[in-house]
């Protein structure tokens, strides 16, 4: 049995969703055109994950096993629609950036996966910690990927477009929109994701070797 701290921190490295669980790749590839898209998607997913974990864990002894998936989906879909409406109303630019991928959180495997594998078997406290941990891990991974792609693709880092928070790291010439457009194109997402997986594996291999030595 893990300690409560481990329950939270496992999502940040050991089971970080896109790299270790290799789940939720659709939004990972699709919305990480910018730093903002990365963290926005990450936090939206975290909200849905934490809420659904909370409710599913609380209802785990009531939900009949045969209809559990249907129940999970209803609960998850509710929070997804709430997120979508709230984002449309209060963070319109972010909501436009993420577009259809907000409603698509409902089919994100991470959420249903955590509901089925964790929240339906563990208490409320642990489920909450699990949701926060996995969610923050997802946010972190998406933000790093988004920052990398945006920086290479356009030379900028968008923190929050609605408040005009962006940094120009590499200034571009007159009339240029892109530094290396491939990176913000869909195939660039695959290449960046592959490079990050490589890096993750290298680091854990190194640390495993040094532990063994």
């Amino acid at each position: 049995m893990k300690t409560l701290t481990q329950e939270f921190t496992k999502g940040l490295w050991e089971q970080i969703p896109p790299f270790r669980l290799v789940l939720g790749l659709c939004p990972t590839l699709a919305v990480t055109k910018s730093l903002e898209g990365g963290w926005g998607m990450g936090l939206a997913t975290t909200f849905v994950l934490v809420c659904s974990n909370l409710f599913i864990s609380a209802l785990r002894n009531v939900i009949p096993p045969k209809v559990r998936i249907a129940t999970f989906i209803v609960i998850i879909a509710t929070f997804v629609v709430i997120t979508e409406l709230v984002m449309k109303a209060y963070t319109p630019m972010l909501s436009e950036t993420l577009g259809v991928f907000i409603p698509l959180i409902v089919v994100n495997c991470i959420i249903l996966g955590r509901a089925e594998a964790f929240a339906s078997k563990n208490g409320i406290g642990r489920s909450l910690l699990d949701g926060f941990g996995i969610g923050f891990g997802f946010t972190l991974a998406l933000a790093v990927l988004g920052a990398l792609r945006e920086l290479l693709g356009t030379g900028k880092l968008t923190m929050f477009a609605q408040a005009n928070l962006d940094l120009t790291i590499i200034p571009l010439g007159e009339g240029r929109e892109f530094l290396f457009k491939f990176m913000v194109d869909p195939p660039g997402a695959f290449v960046c994701l592959g490079a990050m997986l490589l890096l993750m594996n290298l680091i854990s291999e190194r640390s495993a070797r040094s532990k063994a030595a």
Partner: peptide, 14 residues
């Protein structure tokens, strides 16, 4: 929890 009416009721309430 395995009765069909119970499933319907839970799902309905949710």
């Amino acid at each position: 929890r395995n009765k069909i009416w119970f499933m319907a009721v839970v799902l309905g309430i949710v």
